[in-house]
Each structure stands twice: as C-alpha cells, then as structure tokens.
Amino acid sequence: MISLSQKKGNWLPYLLFLPALLYLAGFVGYPLVKTFQLVFTSEKGDIGLANFITLTQDPIFWKALKNTLYLLIVIVPLQVILAFLLALFVNSRFKGYMIVLYIICIPLALSDVSAALMSYNIFSSHGFLNKILINSGLIETPFYFFGLGLSSRSFWVVVLTELWRATPLVFVILLAGLQVISKEYFEAADVFGFSSWQKFFHITLPLTMPSLQSALLIRTLFAFQIFGVVWLLSGRDIPVLAGEVYYQQAELSNFRIAATYGFIIALICILISWIYLTFLKTKHLEV
C-alpha cells in the first residue's frame, strides 16, 4: 500500500518541472507549430509547397542565400584562425596577459547594433578613418566604404565588423580548451625532444579539437543569423537570409514567406550541425 506522502513524492518532480514545461510549450512549442502551419499553407489555404515555390522564384532569395554563404565562408575561418592565434598568445601567460585578455573580450559586451554603429562612425564618409586620411593629406575627398551601389565594399566592412565583434566568443571557447590541457603532456614532449611545431600538431591541436568543434558549430550557426550588422551598414544592398525574415515579416507583413525563410535557415543549420558532429568527431574522446 502506497502512503499519501509517497504518492506526493512521485508527483513532486513532475510538478517542479511543470512551469518550465508550460513555458516551453507556450513560448516555443506553440510558435513552432504555428510556423509549420504558415510554411506549408498557401495564401488560399491549400496545404503544400506553394510558399517554397514563391520564395525560390524570387531572385532576392538566391542573392540572400549567396551573401549569407559568402559571409560564412569568409568570416568563420578568419575568426577561428584569429581566435586560435590570440588564445595561444594569451595562454603563454606572459606578464600582463590578463589585461590583454580583458581588452580582447570587450566586444563580447556589445550588441551587434552597437558594434555596427561604432563601425559606421569609423567608416562613414564623415567618419574617423576618412577624417584621419583627409587630415593627413592622403586623400582629398572621402572614400566611401559603403552606400548606394557599393555593396562589394560594404561586404568587407561587414566582415571587419563581424571579425571584431564575434572573434572574442571563439577566443574564449578556445582559450578554455587550451587551459585544460595538462602540462604533463608538454613535459613528456620535451623529454622526447619535440619541436614547438610538433608539440602544436601532436598535442595542442588534437586536445583542443572538442573546443574547436564547439566554437565552429556556434559560429557557423550564428553566421546564419547575421542580420543587425549587415542591416545597419548596408541596408538591403546586401540581402541576407535572416534579414529577409525580418523584412518579409515587419516591412511586408508577408508572414508565410517570412516563416518559410526561417524554416530554410533552420534546415540549413540542422544540416550543418550534423556535418560538424559527424565529420569533426574527436576520436580520442571515444576511448
């Protein structure tokens, strides 16, 4: 026979996670179901792929996809290389390395909008950079880094801004990975007479692979959400997938197409995560 207190005990764990469950069902589950509904229902109410057909017939979709992939291909490798170099540098624990660590991490506190506005103040025709160049007599008239019909230049300003803003995130993950590598491995390597390169390729790199995998995954997924910086620095001159979600939803009130854009971003993210998790699996952890 089960006593009342035992019964109560059985229910208690469920009761405790009920609020979280209700929250998730209401704020994640319900919108997700509605999004699916929007994605697969046409304006006339027919169920099917009509929204995907409309979307793929719009040249802006292909431009947005191309730009997002370009940004991803340029930004992510650069960020990872830069962050790795910075992490190795800080991990060498030179005198005053903590100050350098803090300076590198400053952009972590910035939102993408703030970073874009700071970038605008540097690169605009009346910005700091143009002022320096004009005052030093290097140029007579301002050099336009972004603006009407200058999307290829804006692209590089976006890349620079993103590098500055988001590299610290990769840096922090990689530094954490480097800090947990036991010194004993390096001491043993010294005994066997390993060179610095050998130590890097045979000890540092394999042991930071889990961190590298996380950093790559996070950055790649974040790259698909890139929006604020591009939006503020180039308007819709450089359409990107996440920007189109906002544009279709907020500006055109085209909820179905916005949801379809969102759905496609989610699909790409799932695919990329699967690729990363499958092909970058760290073998030494399976032992």
């Binding site: 605008y120 025709s125 009346h126 336009y144 972004f146 603006g147 009407l148 620095l233 180039s234 308007g235």
Partner: peptide, 23 residues
C-alpha cells in the same frame, strides 16, 4: 541624378543627422 545622390543615403533612415553633420 544618381551620381549626385550621397552614397550613404542607402543607410540613412532619417535626414536630420546627415543634415546636422553637413554630410
């Protein structure tokens, strides 16, 4: 008219700031 329109127009959302900065 296009060559005489300020290139940064594509990012301006209101004209008060560019006017004040004499851009």
């Amino acid at each position: 008219l296009r060559p005489y329109i300020h290139p940064s127009s594509s990012v301006w959302e209101s004209m008060d700031e560019p006017l004040l900065k004499e851009e």
